[in-house]
Design a protein around this nucleic acid. Structure first.
Lengths: 208, 208, 208, 208
DNA sequence: TATGAATGAGCCTTCATTCAT
DNA sequence: AATGAATGAAGGCTCATTCAT
């Protein structure tokens, strides 16, 4: 049955769904999740009210799909620490990862805006997804710290707490300089370095 | 007209208002701001619907009052850096401040929960209050860093970014260990130290 | 028991009731009947909410009392046609009555405003009072016309319809020149004459 | 997109709107404007609450639409005075106009009821519409009187006051015999003549 | 499959009235 | 008698979701 007709219909479906996702992303980031109505989304997408429900079960569902796609992109920014001999130094790997994450955040401003502003506590499913992501990030850092402690480059510390500090630093900085920032004078590279420098060496003079 | 009758009535008013604030705090933290209706609040407070409106203009208003009182408590936790000769070392002052903040957060779990979860982007007035608080905290840290740089104990760095990292660390840790934590095994003192240690000396071995 | 205390209390009661009536009249004419709340009345009268209900059963009740007093004043403006030999001519009597009515309307602008604007159809009791008044006025005119027909000065006509025309003329003119009028250039005397002239002789030339 | 489906939907919309207008007219005239709730209207129309808001913005809006349609019908009853040689006499033209107006009023009893009872002072937009209509009627009469004065058939008089008397006569008679009347023994033709006779010749004997 | 009219639960808010003090 | 806090019925309105076409 994969004749021209059904193929056309299928591509039509894909197209419609994408249009709805894009429209949702736009109005969500503009008005916020709660202030956005289904009407807003379908108006933006130029489809009928009922059509929405042929692609998504609810407002939450479409948001979840947007969030999942963002998180999936972010996940792929986080790669395990390369412990091979010829790998770049740990510091460089960390900076690169932080930078890649900021890059994704920056490239998806409209959806990250709403994630930062309203996603937390919005719904159990949403929370689970976010926890998964933040948990993964935390785990990545904890692992990196453990590796460092193994080879003696990282001092004794509460790995989990420190990992959370790093995650929190990234969230706050991303929020401040990517989301709220009116000015565009944000240099992701520089800030990534600053975060990693702080993490590795602290603020005290002469510690390197 | 300050006779017994009106004095009793006045104290009754204060009592009722407090009851509503407490009830609101409870249901807000349980269901979240948006999911909470005026009905939920008055049911929890065991008063009639109309009574709510004798004390508050709207849901936003009562939330704002809760938030303002939390922030006022937090504000008083942040004291300027003491630069006198006989003052305790900077590190101790920082730890003490972080700890005081955590203490307030911990003591006001139900309202901080909702603040952490939904307050951002909820409303312009709410945002202003939060920005004020976080701005104050950031400013406190920037000042402390500048002082350190002045006396040569703090290395060159982007003070604002670093300040945001520290604020973010505190938010994330507070959220993780105070709000989401099922387990009560949180040691605010220890975590305060860990944050400050990380901030001052980083994670790299032998830097002290 | 008519001692000083109770007499004082009694005069206090009368005073309070009058204050409420005056206050009600003021706010009714300012905001209209429906837009006026009990709160508006008691605020204007500077008494407590509950006090209102010690003097009146409801908003309708106090309005009814205001209306009754207006109507009673108007009633006394309408005196039977004097058929005695030495009485002034019918025409003069009619002009005088119309004028007296306009005078009362004019002197009670604040309450007549609301009567003209909202009283009709407001409530059965209110309607009954108004019908009574308008009926009385109609009856007065019908009688006058019958008298005129009896002595041959009034031509054959449908007395009731004509009476209603006259009542309607007075209502419309009063509304237009007393209530809605921004300008104060209204001459009640002149208009009374105009109405009676019209009624007696019509608009056609040379009919006198 | 003007296919069968949308055409059917469109006619359905028109039908529903008409049903709501009819229902509103019924309950308004039965209970009065203020005493009527949206619930009353939708109950009468047998549609859901929300449906109302697909067609009208508010109670005021639907009333305004009813009023506008009544006034538009009334407007077309008022035609300019025909001054041509072969035109029917002024008196006949006046009677015809009065009669046509009474006919419209009579045919729209339920909406005119509410207009007579509560429309004045109900709302600025409502007032404007009514003023427009009454103003138009007054203007028509003033013009007719001026014409009569021009050709010498109308005596000197205050045209505006007289015009208001005539408008008032019509209102009162319409109210009395069309709206309040339990009995159906109202002869619009006869009454129209009576009004015009009165207006032209007054009540005094032998003036023709 | 697309449509959009219809639905009705549920929200916020007002306000006349009651009642304990 | 005066007070004013408390009440709760009732109103207007929104909006996610359903369903006949």
């Amino acid at each position: 049955m994969n004749d021209g007709r059904s193929r056309r219909a299928e591509s039509q479906r894909v197209y419609r769904k994408a249009a709805l996702l894009t429209a949702a992303q736009e109005v969500f980031s503009e008005r916020g999740y709660h202030a956005t109505s289904i009407t807003d989304i379908v108006t933006q997408a130029s489809v009928a009210r009922g059509t929405f429900y042929q692609y998504f079960d609810s407002k939450k569902e479409i948001f979840l799909e947007l969030l999942a796609s963002l998180i999936s992109e972010l996940q792929s920014s986080i790669v395990g620490v390369d412990q091979k001999e010829d790998a770049p130094p740990l510091e460089q790997q960390l900076i690169a990862t932080v930078y890649r994450i900021f890059d994704v955040v920056s490239a998806n401003r409209s959806i990250t805006t709403i994630v930062f502003r309203e996603a937390v506590g919005l719904d159990q499913d949403v929370d689970r997804l976010l926890q998964q992501f933040y948990g993964g990030l935390e785990h990545y850092i904890v692992t990196a710290l453990a590796v460092g402690q193994g080879v003696g480059t990282v001092r004794p510390l509460h790995r989990e707490v420190v990992a959370n500090c790093i995650v929190g630093s990234m969230r706050q900085v991303a929020h401040r300089y990517l989301i709220d920032a009116q000015e565009e004078k944000f240099d992701a590279k520089h800030i990534s370095e600053e975060i990693v420098q702080l993490t590795l060496h602290g603020v005290v003079t002469g510690q390197n």
